[in-house]
Amino acid sequence: MKQLLNTVYVSDPEVYLALKGSNLNLIKENDSIARVPLHNIEAICTFGHQGASPALIHECMDRQISITFFSSGGRFRGRVTGEMNGNVTLRKKQYKVSEDELECADIAKHIVIGKLFNSEQVLKRIVRDHELRVDSKKLMQAIERLKESRKLAAGTQDLESLRGIEGNAASAYFSVFNECIIQQKESFSFSSRSRRPPLDPVNALLSFSYSLLASETAAALEGVGLDSYVGFMHRDRPGRISLALDVMEEMRPLIADRFVLKLINRQQVNRKDFVVKENGAVLLTDQARKTFLQLWQKEKQDTFTHPFLKEKMPWGLAPHVQSLLLARYLRGDLEAYPPILIR
Rank of each mutant, 00 (worst) to 15 (best):
E166Q: 15
L162F: 03
L139D: 11
F177K: 00
I143T: 07
M140G: 13
A154F: 07
E144V: 06
Y173M: 12
L152F: 01
E166T: 01
E160K: 07
Y173K: 13
K151R: 14
G155Y: 04
R145Y: 04
I165D: 04
I165G: 01
Q141R: 13
R150W: 03
T156H: 05
S149T: 04
N178R: 11
L139F: 10
G167I: 04
E166Y: 11
L159Y: 02
V176H: 05
R145A: 13
I143Q: 11
E144Y: 02
A153K: 02
G164R: 06
L162Q: 08
E148N: 09
G164Q: 10
S161Y: 00
L146V: 03
A169N: 08
A169I: 02
D158P: 01
V176W: 08
L159F: 03
Q157V: 04
F177Q: 01
G164H: 06
A172E: 01
S175H: 09
E144M: 09
F177P: 00
K151Q: 13
Q157I: 04
L152H: 05
A169G: 14
Q141F: 05
L159R: 06
L152S: 07
Y173R: 12
K147P: 04
T156M: 07
G167R: 10
R163A: 00
L159H: 04
A170W: 08
S161Q: 13
F174Q: 14
S161R: 09
I143P: 09
R163K: 12
L159Q: 06
E179H: 06
A169R: 03
S149I: 03
L139W: 05
S175A: 15
A169Y: 09
E166W: 07
R150D: 04
S161L: 08
F177M: 13
Q157S: 14
F174H: 10
A172D: 02
Y173G: 11
N178K: 11
Q141S: 15
V176I: 12
I165W: 06
F177G: 01
G155Q: 13
E148W: 00
E166M: 03
Q157L: 05
L159T: 07
G167Q: 13
A142G: 14
S149G: 14
A169T: 05
S161C: 07
A172S: 15
E166P: 00
A169V: 05
I143Y: 07
R145I: 06
Q157P: 02
A153V: 03
L146W: 01
N168A: 15
V176Y: 06
S161A: 10
M140V: 08
Q157A: 10
L159M: 10
L159A: 14
D158V: 05
S161K: 12
S149W: 02
G167T: 07
S161F: 00
E160T: 10
L146H: 03
R163F: 00
S175C: 12
L152Y: 00
I165K: 06
E179L: 12
A154C: 08
N168H: 11
V176R: 05
N178I: 05
E148R: 12
E144H: 07
R163W: 00
L146S: 03
S149N: 09
L162N: 07
V176M: 09
N168K: 11
Q157T: 02
E166L: 02
E148T: 07
G167V: 05
A153L: 06
